[in-house]
């Protein structure tokens, strides 16, 4: 496939990037690692006039972490850098588990955390060449007026296919966003709109600058389980992230469960937090939460596996993750957090 034509602007500061993005509005697109944007450009899913290459902005790089402000990852931090960060397993095991599952090592060397959190939603009917799409008259999301997943509906169901977002939801991450009006910070959960066509809450001229994780959610045990056809490279067909804190008596002190690739947004299973807190392990309780997870999941025919199978795997993964975290010392938050 070939690339469409565009101009490339390479700002050297966040202020400059914001100015360029604000000036060009919907005509501009941000590129960092390129692993998501470039194939989509080649498929003509986007037609930006200006590509804003932010890789030269030093301020967007690097990980800092201390016990006062918690973890801050610049948007350009690569997934490899996070996977290899020496404290990830000790402080935020769910994040390590999730980033290690993204695509393969070469994609992780290029792909950034900012990019992974702003990933384009995916659908079998959308992520295809222009020729392929046009033979069907396009779809709701692109060049058409019919959704092939839910014909008759006016909503796009393209799925959220990033792995790091559900993990970061389970540790209550926040996003730092720069825009023409200055900087703002929002909970990651408010960033996602659960709309396949309009997936994230970024206004004109806005740029994700960093991800913050509060100290209060450090040392939770955690794991991310991912369904895919191959054990490498593939996007998730379903994903379950679980983070929990268990005290010395085996009582759950905090727990979050979040899902990927079964909705247009990464989604917290809201019932999990309240129903698990203060409880001891029981098989019935775990099954109940697994059931809540499949009530949150709305898998449709957007992906290379059936909705029924993906829903079953959400239930299985949730149950196994909770069993594993509750009954073993994996994630080893125990010793430090007490």
């Amino acid at each position: 496939m070939t690339m469409p034509g565009f101009r490339v602007i390479r700002p050297s500061s966040v202020d400059e990037a914001v100015r360029v993005l604000a000036d060009n509005g919907p005509e501009a697109m941000v590129i960092a690692g390129g692993t998501d944007v470039v194939p989509n450009l080649q498929m003509r899913l986007f037609a930006p006039r200006v590509l804003v290459d932010i890789k030269g902005i030093g301020e967007l790089r690097g990980i800092t972490c201390n016990d006062r402000v918690g973890l801050r990852m610049g948007a350009l931090t690569t997934l490899t850098e996070i996977a290899e960060w020496k404290f990830v397993e000790r402080c935020f095991p769910v994040l390590g588990s999730a980033v290690r599952s993204v695509a393969g090592p070469l994609q992780r060397n290029m792909g950034t955390i900012g990019g992974n959190l702003c990933l384009e939603t995916r659908c079998l009917w959308y992520n295809q060449s222009e020729f392929w799409r046009q033979s069907l008259g396009g779809c709701l999301k692109k060049q058409g007026d019919v959704c092939h997943v839910a014909p008759g509906g006016q909503r796009c169901w393209a799925v959220w296919s990033g792995d790091s977002a559900p993990a970061l939801l389970t540790v209550e991450a926040e996003l730092e966003i720069a825009g023409p009006g200055g900087r703002r910070r929002i909970p990651l959960a408010e960033f996602y709109r659960n709309d396949g066509m309009n997936r994230i809450a970024l206004g004109r001229g806005e740029l994700v600058v960093a991800v913050h994780v509060p100290v209060s959610s450090a040392f939770r045990r955690g794991v991310y389980r991912k369904l895919r056809v191959r054990d490498s490279i593939d996007y998730p067909l379903a994903g379950v992230a679980v983070a929990m804190k268990v005290d010395g008596q085996g009582i759950c002190r905090a727990a979050r469960v979040a899902l990927a690739a079964v909705n247009p947004a990464p989604q917290l299973v809201h019932a999990a937090a309240e129903r698990l807190e203060g409880k001891r392990y029981s098989a019935e309780l775990v099954e109940e939460i697994a059931h809540e997870a499949i009530r949150t999941a709305k898998p449709l025919t957007t992906s290379a596996s059936t909705p029924v199978y993906r829903r079953d795997m959400v239930r299985l993964f949730t149950r196994r993750a909770l069993e594993e975290l509750w009954q073993t010392r994996r994630g080893n938050g125990e010793k430090r957090a007490g």
Binding site: V8, R10, I31, T35, D53, P105, L106, N109, M110
Partner: peptide
């Protein structure tokens, strides 16, 4: 020194 995929890299970057 880091292996990367040149098919998704803009040369100008």
């Amino acid at each position: 020194g880091m292996p990367m995929l040149s098919c998704v890299a803009l040369a100008t970057s």
